[in-house]
Amino acid sequence: MHKRNRLFVSIALVYGLLGGLIAISRLIDPGLIPGNVPRAHGHIMLLGFILMMVYGIALHVLPRFGGFPLYSERMADWQLYLANAGLPVMVAGWLAWRDPLVIVGGVLSYGAIVLFGLNMILTVVGRKK
């Protein structure tokens, strides 16, 4: 399994644990962490845990199931960087009530989504570079 894909799965687990801790702290003491905690929790779990788990597994299996090599390793590397730059910025924006940070983080996260989507489409249809 490619190191980048193992990183995606590992980071997913870290985000899952972090998102859970944030939710537990909110349940125990709603004032402990400032900002929009439910929204931060939801996006840490969905974009951080579920989506990064999907990224790691899909980048490994879809080329094999599709019968073609991954279209672009470089796109997948940049997907890792963008996804992990975007989510912390977005979460910081919610916790600090800073909309510009949320927008920047959202754009970076969306960049990772687009890179993943295009890379998977071009891989599964067997397009050569």
């Binding site: 193992r6 799965v9 590992s10 687990l13 899952g16 644990l17 859970g20 939710a23």
Partner: peptide
Amino acid sequence: LTVMGAILAWLSLATFAARVWPVLW
């Protein structure tokens, strides 16, 4: 009960992470 459920579910994820980490690294 809700808080207890959240903690138990988190411990389950921690158990999974502890099982999977050596598989990955």
